[in-house]
């Protein structure tokens, strides 16, 4: 028994240490993941309250939380924001290959526009021992892996946008029927102002944020942040991260 207790005492600090290390090493993903869950929960509560207020005004039955979470009204509100976020990163990843912004830490150095050489990108014969396997692989695997970040962001964007269109059609039609109007087909919804209003109001805000970040970071600093240049770096210094 004593030996077992001793073993537990030996392993417990080890486990705690490993957990602490894991939290420390993954702080960014964990913090944003937790904040995401809290924000979605808040959105669900506020969205349900707003939705129920409309239903009660029309003399209809309010919905409970599980029903709201599986409703098209909630789904379209979620997916319209997701698609624009992934579009923002997809565009940023691809556009910054070719376009530069003098003085911005978000940009490469001005002479490096383009996909760069294999030596600079550590691919093919220039891959190192610790490079991902597909960086050294020939043919399609290297080509796919060389664009995998942008491709995944682009595919998620398209899936979310498609999902927005489908759930948007259902939510729009539910509203149409509440107002004693005829529902519309998915193809017709894609031409409606509602679909483009939801889409473009999200796109414009994402594009503005990216443009603001590219320009503000030329002149402004955040000490210690890799998204900023070092505080003392020159305004003209490009592609320098703090």
């Amino acid at each position: 028994m004593n030996r077992t207790a001793g073993a537990q005492e030996d392993t417990a600090p080890g486990r705690t240490g490993r957990l602490r290390r894991f939290v420390h090493d993954n702080g960014l993903a964990l913090a944003f993941g937790a904040a995401f869950v809290l924000a979605v929960a808040g959105q669900a509560a506020a969205g349900r309250a707003e939705f129920n207020s409309l239903l009660i005004t029309d003399g209809l039955a309010p919905v409970d939380l599980p029903a709201y979470l599986t409703s098209s009204d909630f789904a379209v509100d979620v997916t319209e924001n997701w698609q624009s976020e992934f579009l923002q990163f997809f565009l940023y990843i691809f556009v910054t290959v070719w376009l530069v912004q003098r003085g911005s830490p978000e940009s490469k150095q001005t002479g490096k526009a383009g996909p760069e050489s294999d030596r600079e990108q550590l691919v093919g014969e220039h891959a190192r021992d610790d490079s991902p396997r597909w960086a050294a692989a020939p043919g399609w695997r290297r080509a796919v892996y060389s664009h995998s970040l942008g491709l995944v962001m682009g595919v998620i964007f398209l899936l979310c946008w498609f999902s927005q269109s489908v759930t948007g059609t259902a939510a729009y039609n539910e509203q149409q029927l509440r107002q004693l109007e005829a529902p519309v087909a998915w193809s017709e919804y894609l031409l409606r102002a509602e679909f483009w209003s939801r889409t473009l109001q999200n796109w414009q805000s994402e594009l503005l944020a990216v443009a603001a970040m590219a320009v503000f970071s030329i002149y402004l600093r955040q000490r210690g942040s890799p998204e900023s240049k070092p505080v003392g770096a020159a305004h003209a210094a490009t592609g320098v991260e703090g």
Binding site: L60, A170, A171
Partner: peptide, 30 residues
Amino acid sequence: LDVYGDQARAVLDHDTLFLAHFPGGWKVTA
């Protein structure tokens, strides 16, 4: 018959009905 969430429309030979879902089941709203 169109059903979207808690709303529905039934197009019949000589009339159109609108319905909504309540805790007690579907009811005719119009």
